[in-house]
Amino acid sequence: MGEDHVPGVEPELGLRERKKRETRRRIADIATGLFMTRGFDNVTIADVARTADVSVNTVFNYFRTKEDLFFDRQDEVIEAAGRDFRDRRPGEGAVALFRRRFFEGLDARGHQTAFHEGSEVWTRTVRDSPALMARQREIGRRAQDRLADLLAEATGAGPDDIAPRAAAAMIFAVQNTLVEQIADRKSAGETLQEMAEDVYAAAARAFDLLEHGLGSYAAAPAAGTAGTAAEGPVAGK
């Protein structure tokens, strides 16, 4: 007879499953340390196995590829946007949700924003490896597709309705652009304190553009007038 299970509550893991998860986490943590220190392309699976004191076959039992070792939480990343969307507040729209979540990430110095100590090491490791860059793009695409599916479901959009995919693409574009800017500045040697004011202002500006639209952004000056192109609305956090 099976054990009783309360809906919505994850059952306690058995000893064997806990040990498997602990082993997986240990191997991934050791691999990450090696990748960050030596560079991803300079570390082999054999190096990871030797340092973790396990066999190469054991590593492959948990991770199909070396990229999976680096992005060992890729499934969580892919599901994160969907989980946030399902948990949005009553009456909260998609843009308001992801704006709030991004600022919460900044406040918490979350890894998903690159606004945390040590992010420059992660950035360098990824950017120095074409394989990691390709995998990062793939993870982002899958996460975006997942959000698009949920947007379509929530709005009752048909298969030919472009709105859910366009909305998901724009939300991810804003987030990715902000993260890239933060990563660039952190990699250039700026401290979190030095860039904080600009980072928060840039995030507010980017999400304002997303929320209010680009209709008047960069419009040419009216005939007979001088000056720069209109920049569109500016609002705060």
Rank of each mutant, 00 (worst) to 15 (best):
A131G: 06
L132D: 08
M133E: 14
A134V: 04
A134K: 13
A134I: 05
R137H: 10
R137E: 14
R141C: 09
R142I: 02
R142W: 03
A143C: 08
A143P: 08
A143D: 01
Q144V: 01
Q144L: 07
Q144A: 09
D145H: 06
D145S: 12
R146A: 10
R146D: 12
L147I: 05
L147T: 00
L150T: 01
L150C: 01
L150W: 01
L150A: 02
A152I: 08
E153C: 05
E153R: 13
A154I: 02
T155V: 12
G156N: 06
G156F: 02
A157M: 03
A157S: 08
P159D: 03
P159A: 07
D161N: 04
D161C: 03
P164D: 08
R165G: 03
A166H: 05
A168S: 11
A168V: 02
M170Q: 14
M170T: 08
I171A: 04
I171H: 06
I171L: 15
F172S: 13
A173M: 14
V174K: 07
V174A: 13
Q175F: 07
N176Q: 11
T177Q: 11
T177M: 12
L178A: 06
L178W: 09
L178C: 06
V179N: 07
E180I: 11
Q181D: 13
Q181R: 07
Q181V: 07
Q181K: 07
I182E: 00
A183G: 06
D184Y: 08
D184I: 09
D184G: 00
R185C: 00
R185W: 07
K186T: 07
S187R: 05
A188R: 10
A188T: 01
A188N: 08
T191D: 07
L192V: 03
L192D: 07
L192Q: 00
Q193W: 10
E194G: 09
E194H: 01
M195T: 06
M195W: 00
A196Q: 10
E197V: 10
E197C: 01
Y200M: 04
Y200G: 00
A201N: 11
A202C: 13
A202W: 10
A202M: 15
R205C: 12
A206F: 12
L209V: 12
L210H: 12
E211Y: 11
